Every structure is written in C-alpha cells, then in structure tokens.
Amino acid sequence: MKKVLSSVGVISVCLSASMAWSQDDLQGILDRHCLACHNAGLAGAPKMDDVAAWAPRLEKDLDVLTQTVISGKGAMPPKGTCFSCSDDTLKAAVELMIQPFK
C-alpha cells in the first residue's frame, strides 16, 4: 500500500511540475488578456508606461493585486478574461506584469 501511495505522490508532483507556466506562456497570457487595456489605458486601466499610476498599486501585496485580477475591478472582468487560468497562473502573470516597476 505504501508503494502505491508513494507512486501516486510522485505522479502528482510530476503532473504539477508539467503544468507550470514558462515565461513565454505567461507573456502570452499578458499579451492576450492584459496588455490591450493596460498599454492603451482603456477604461481607467493603469498604462504600462505610467509609473505614477502603478505606484499605489505596487504598495499592495502581490496576493492583493492577484485577488483584484481574480475578482475583476471596474471595467476589467474577473480573471481579466483568462477564464482558463488558475489563480496561481494569474499570480505568476501579475508578478511578470509588475516586474518592470521593481
């Protein structure tokens, strides 16, 4: 029985690792679901080149920023339209998106 449980654990770890998103995958998510609004500043979205607009957001914890994306805000729909994205994937995408401001 222990061998079976150990094998299941190994398989679970391997599956989780294979589901991890690469930086290219995350950039693709940003390109498809985030940057159309954030590059142009549509509907009040902070523009990617507006450091002052991002400053108060960057004072917040990454988890708070991610929860805003998950829930949606203003004209931004929940998950920024990436309905197939897990919460962890969205968190990684948010982290990549705010990287230029760090």
Rank of each mutant, 00 (worst) to 15 (best):
M48G: 05
C37H: 00
K47G: 05
M76N: 07
M76T: 03
I29K: 01
K2T: 12
C37A: 12
A92T: 01
P46I: 06
V8M: 15
D25I: 07
T81Q: 14
A20P: 02
Q23D: 15
V51C: 01
K2Q: 11
L15C: 15
L35T: 13
A45G: 11
R32W: 02
M48Q: 05
A52N: 11
R32P: 00
C14N: 09
D50Y: 04
L65T: 07
L15R: 03
L5D: 06
S18P: 02
K3P: 01
L5H: 14
Q67D: 04
F101M: 11
P78H: 08
A55S: 02
E95S: 08
L65C: 10
K47H: 06
C82L: 10
K102F: 12
F101W: 14
A43R: 12
L42I: 10
V64Y: 03
G80W: 02
G44M: 03
D24H: 07
K102E: 04
D31E: 06
S86K: 07
K47E: 05
I70G: 03
A53D: 01
A36G: 14
H38K: 00
M97I: 08
A93R: 00
K3W: 13
G80C: 14
G9Q: 06
L5S: 15
V13W: 06
A55Q: 12
A40M: 11
V94A: 08
L62P: 00
M76I: 08
V10W: 12
L42M: 03
M48S: 09
T66H: 09
L5W: 06
C14S: 14
V8Y: 08
Q67F: 00
I11H: 05
T81C: 05
A36P: 01
G44C: 07
D25H: 10
A17E: 10
V13Q: 03
M97G: 08
A55L: 14
T81L: 11
N39I: 06
V10Y: 03
G44V: 04
L30D: 13
